[in-house]
Structure formats: C-alpha cells, structure tokens
Design a binder for these strands. Structure first.
Length: 571
RNA sequence: CGGGGCAUGGCGCAGCUUGGUAGCGCAUCUGCUUUGGGAGCAGAGGGUCGAGGGUUCAAAUCCCUCUGCCCCGACCA
C-alpha cells in the first residue's frame, strides 16, 4: 500500500479525554475516531489490525472444528423473556421498540438466539456435538464506558456456543477451546495467561479467563509463587492460617473521632494500625429494603463477588444509601460499627478473629476502642468475603500469592443446561429418549485485543506492533524521494519486489520531509522499516530498523533485503 | 446511580473575574526557501463561542433551563 493512496492521518496531540496509552495512541495514530461515548469508528489503519486479529481467530476456530455463522445484532424481546434475562440483565441491555411497538434489544451476547436456532435445527444426538461461532458487533450499555476501545459500549466479539449430549462431551470441546485460545493468543504475540474464573453456577461448572498482562488492566489476577495456580482474585478463596482470637484485655471505651471517617484517618488519629480497626460496610440486603452489615479487618478489601454468593446481599452488590445508613445505624457512614447494630452482620474470618479492636460507635464522630466479640456484641456469622492480598497463602497449598493486573480478552465457560432448559433445547438420544442439550460458550473480545496489544507494546514514540497483528509488516521509507528520479525509480522497484515476495508493505511515498515520515511510521508502529536514500543507493545498500530497537541501524545490501527480512520476521 | 468539572475552527488551548462583537499553537491550502528525525518565511481558508431563554444600548463573558461530554466515587463506614 502506498501512503498516498491510503489514509494516514496522525495527530501530535491526543484529545484531552483520552487517559490510557492505548486510547491516546489509537487516536493519535488515526486508528479510531470517537463518534459518541463508548462508540468508535475504525479508520482504515485501525481496521487493518482489527481484521488481522479477526483472521487469526477465524483460522484457529475453523481448524478447531467450529463452524462460522452470523446472527442478528437486533434480537426480539420474546427470546430474552423466555430465558428470563429480559428482567435480569438490567440497564446494560439496550432496548428499543420498532414502529409496531414490538420490543427488541441490541444483542450484548447471543445465548438466546443460538439456543433458539439449535432447538430448531438440531433434532438428533447424531448432529452433536456442534460448535457454532460468529464474529460480530455487540452492544453493552456500560454504566461507565472508558479507556477508549478497552471498555467501549459497542465492540467486536467472537462468540462461540457448543452443544452436547453430555457433560463429558462438553468437557472435551471445552478443552479443545482452551487449547485453541492458547494458540490464538500465542499467534497475536501477546503475553497472556489463562486463569481460573468465577464459575457462577453450581454443578462443578468450569470457567477460565484469558488475560493480557498490563499495568492498566481492570482485573486483578492472583498467582502462586510456587505452582502454576492463577485465578481471578474475585474467586480466590482465602486460606486463613493461624487465626486465633486473643483474649480480651481492654475495656470498651467510646472515643471522639471528629471528622475522622476513613479507616486511614481513624487509625492515624488513634495511632494504631489499620489492621486493629474494623470496617463495617452497610450494603443492600437480598430482602427488599433491608440492609446487611459486612465486617472486615481495616486493611482488608471487600470481595463483592464472594459477598454476593453468600445470598445475604442484593445482587449485584450495592452500597446502602446515605438515608438507609442513617436509619439503620443512626449516624453517617464514617461512624458505623457492629456494636448494637440491629441488622444482620456477616464478618470475614480475619475480622472475626480480632480482639480489642476499634470500630464505629454508630454515633457521628465517635468510635469504640477495646471492643471484643462475644463480650461487647454477639458473635457474628463468619464467612469469607475479602479479596486475597499479596502474601496470602495459595489455595492449592503451594507458595504464596502475588497480585497483578490483567485485561480480560477471552472467557470460556461451561454453561451446562441453563439456557437449554429454559428454552427447551432438546434432542433424541440413541435410545430415542428426549434429553436436554448441554452447552458451552467461548468469547474473545476482538477489538479489546487490539487495545490490549498497545497497552502491552508501546514506547514514547508510539505503538510497537507484534508482527502478527501489525497493520503492515514493513515500512518502506525513502528519504527525499522527490528530489531524485533515480531514487524514486529504485524505491518503486523495491516496493514492487517486496510486494511480490509476499510482504505486507506500507510504502511512504508522501512528499514529506524524512523526519515526518519516520515519526509517523514509528507512531503507527510498523515493526520493520527499510530506509532507502540517494546516498545509500551509491553503495547499493539499504538501512534496516526494528521498531522494538529503534536506535539500532543495520546496513543491508539491496539484493539481500528479501532474505534479510524473511530471517527477521521468522525470528 | 451520586459528586465534581468542562463545552470557543479538525485537535490542543487562551479570552470570561472587570460585558464593547473572537485569538494562539498544531493541522489544512498557496507561494518561495529548506530537506537523514515532527522545517522557515509570507499569505489564505475555516468558528451562529453546545442549545434555548433572560438581563443589557451591547453577551463567548452575567443569570436561568436543557443537552452533551469528561473525571472521580460507588471500599469514608
């Protein structure tokens, strides 16, 4: 491709609202343009990378035996009512009515549609197992879209759904998909890891997430120091060791803590460690208009997923309103404590093992010190509701955990028969008996992979594409080509040559100064660059630069360039 | 959803306090010069200052309403 016939429109400055690296660079490089909040247009350059990712996914899915189809983005409400999700899904589901006032939604996912198709198409066990997939635009009306393409409302996703006669059979496809995902992410050239994820349903359902490790990841992943255990912190059980409650040794006292609301402020004010303070979070309970107290050690963090799984709190977990807090505790949030609190109290084991602790006094600007369970207040219900931290023991018994950030780019899931039962997706088995199909689903955020790749691969000059997903492999950058006919002819010839040798070349034939060309090619991140100039022509050589190691220049004889590139690309 | 902020040419911003009819940098276009790391000079085009209403002789500027966008929070307890 010649830049003169392509659309290269780079910016020196990024829009003020772009905060993360991938967003800034995608806008500056001219890959995307924002159309509305969380909604972006893919410009020609960005689309090339998006398509490369898409093609890798498609090739690997095909060779794994999955079958591509394309389902509608607009889906009728009836299917969602049948599965029960029309009510459950909440505000993230974009709903609208057509001219006849029939209700529809823009699909955030396609379990309902695929299950509807499967129940109509699949009649016999002989047709199973089958794994359908599509690559298609999804819409999720996120509360707070941000980070550009990373958390957009409209995004491109590969979603696959498999159908089986048995859990056993599902297990095989699941493993096949796991292996396929590993191959896909290896081909993208990204550093990733597969982690055990929240399994949600009962029945031993399995789920794994694939994360690209990056500083700005929105998920926290816990790794074991001594085994290959890795899991989303949401689901890591805390293995408490050596938790023995000390004897009460102090009397409970009320102390003034004016204007001290956070654990940090209170512990500093009283000059004690945060781990000696108790934090009491009032959240909305599962019963309508009820409030539940979640109690944690001051230095611990609530795990909303675990708390939700206790069944005691409203799902998804939400904090009680200011008014509800005042009604339940008689004070503002900053002074709430479990002593004398007349709501259900769930305490994390770490909090339940504390003695002589500090907690809110349920009176504005007062806390208690020297508080003890069983003496000053009833023993609490004890349940694991905190997030693991660096240094916690690994649940598999090997080593300790450390926590890193990841961007979730893939998620595979054993669904079981949740949708198949709700929507009566049944087949006849080999005995002529009606059975409900078992399902799996497998997603990859295609557009998010592009953003994640940039988060993981950039420097202060711009993007550094992994070769497998670069918009172009090779940048051909002539120096002052319009001053020299012979240079122009040589560059044109070289371009033809590289193209017929099968390289994906971006030939920068713009009438621009070399600095502009170099800066642009670096910003848009083309991994391999060849420089041709009049001066080099005299010695019959070219210069080669690797985007990853931009300060190093190699001189290559012109006739060897194709071989040279081949070696670099295959390395 | 709660709180805060912003809205001025394609992008980044100034002007608003103290009303007087819009400006800078980048980008774009033309010409000349320049040419191995985002050039220089000269010139040009492009903005109903988010929308609506009000105050005033006069509103980007002051007041009200609305809309859009961004950030923070939803873990002060």
């Amino acid at each position: 491709m010649r830049t003169s016939q392509f659309s290269i429109h780079t910016l020196k400055e990024a829009p003020a609202d772009a905060e993360v690296v991938s967003h800034r660079l995608m806008v500056r490089a001219g890959m995307i343009r924002r159309i509305a909040t969380g909604i972006y247009a893919w410009m020609p350059l960005g689309l090339r990378t998006l398509r490369k990712v898409e093609n890798i996914v498609r090739e690997e899915m095909n060779s794994a035996g999955a079958i591509e189809l394309l389902m509608p983005a607009v889906q009728p409400a009836e299917l969602w009512q049948e599965s029960g999700r029309w009510e459950q899904y909440g505000a993230e589901l974009l709903r609208f009515a057509d001219r006849h006032e029939r209700e529809f939604c823009f699909g955030p996912t396609h379990e309902e549609v695929i299950t509807d198709l499967a129940r109509r198409e699949i009649r016999s066990y002989k047709q199973l197992p089958v794994n359908y997939y599509q690559i298609q635009t999804k819409f999720r009306d996120e509360i707070r879209p941000r980070f550009g393409i990373m958390r957009a409302r409209e995004f491109l996703m590969k979603d696959a759904y498999s159908f089986h006669v048995s859990e056993d059979c599902l297990g095989k496809t699941y493993q096949n998909m796991f292996d396929t995902y590993v191959r896909i992410f290896e081909r993208t050239g990204l550093e990733f890891c597969a982690v055990a994820a929240d399994s949600g349903n009962i029945g031993g359902n399995l789920s794994h997430e694939f994360h690209v490790l990056a500083e700005y990841g929105e998920d926290a992943i816990a790794f074991s120091s001594e085994s290959d255990y890795a899991a989303n912190v949401e689901m890591v059980g805390v293995t408490e060791t050596g938790l023995v409650r000390a004897e009460a040794s102090r009397k409970m006292q009320k102390v003034a803590t004016p204007e001290k609301h956070s654990i940090g402020e209170v512990s500093q004010h009283l000059n004690i460690d945060a781990s000696r303070c108790l934090k009491t979070l009032l959240v909305n309970g599962a019963e309508e208009n009820s409030v539940v107290a979640l109690v944690l050690r001051g230095d611990h963090t609530l795990n909303a997923i675990k708390a939700t799984k206790t069944g005691a709190v409203a799902a998804p977990l939400t904090m009680a309103s200011e008014a509800a807090i005042r009604q339940a505790a008689g004070c503002a949030a900053g002074s709430v404590g479990p002593v004398g609190l007349r709501v259900r109290v769930l305490a994390d084991p770490g909090a339940a093992a504390m003695a002589d602790f500090v907690c809110g006094a349920n009176e504005d600007d007062y806390h208690f010190t020297g508080v003890n369970w069983g003496r000053d207040l009833p023993e609490p219900e004890v349940v694991d509701i905190r997030c693991v931290m660096d240094g916690d023991p690994s649940p598999d018994g090997h080593g300790t955990l450390s926590v890193a950030r990841g961007i979730e780019v893939g998620h595979i899931f054993q669904l079981g028969n949740k949708y198949a039962t709700a929507m009566k997706a049944e087949v006849l088995d080999e005995n002529g008996k009606v059975i409900t199909m078992t399902m799996g689903c497998y997603g990859i955020g295609i557009s998010r992979v592009v953003a994640a790749a940039i988060e993981q691969n950039h420097d202060d000059r711009g993007i550094i594409w992994p070769a497998g997903i670069a918009p172009f492999q090779v940048a051909l950058t002539p120096v002052n080509m319009y001053k020299s006919v012979r240079l122009r002819e040589a560059a044109d010839r070289l371009y033809e040559e590289l193209q017929s040798a099968g390289y994906d070349v971006l030939y920068d034939d713009r009438k621009a100064r070399p600095g502009v060309i170099f800066a642009d090619m670096e910003l848009i991140g083309i991994p391999y660059r060849i420089i041709i100039s009049d001066r080099l022509l005299d010695s019959g050589t070219l210069e080669y630069k690797d985007r990853r190691n931009i300060d190093k220049t190699e001189i290559v004889p012109m006739e060897e360039i194709s071989e040279f590139l081949r070696a670099r690309i295959e390395a």
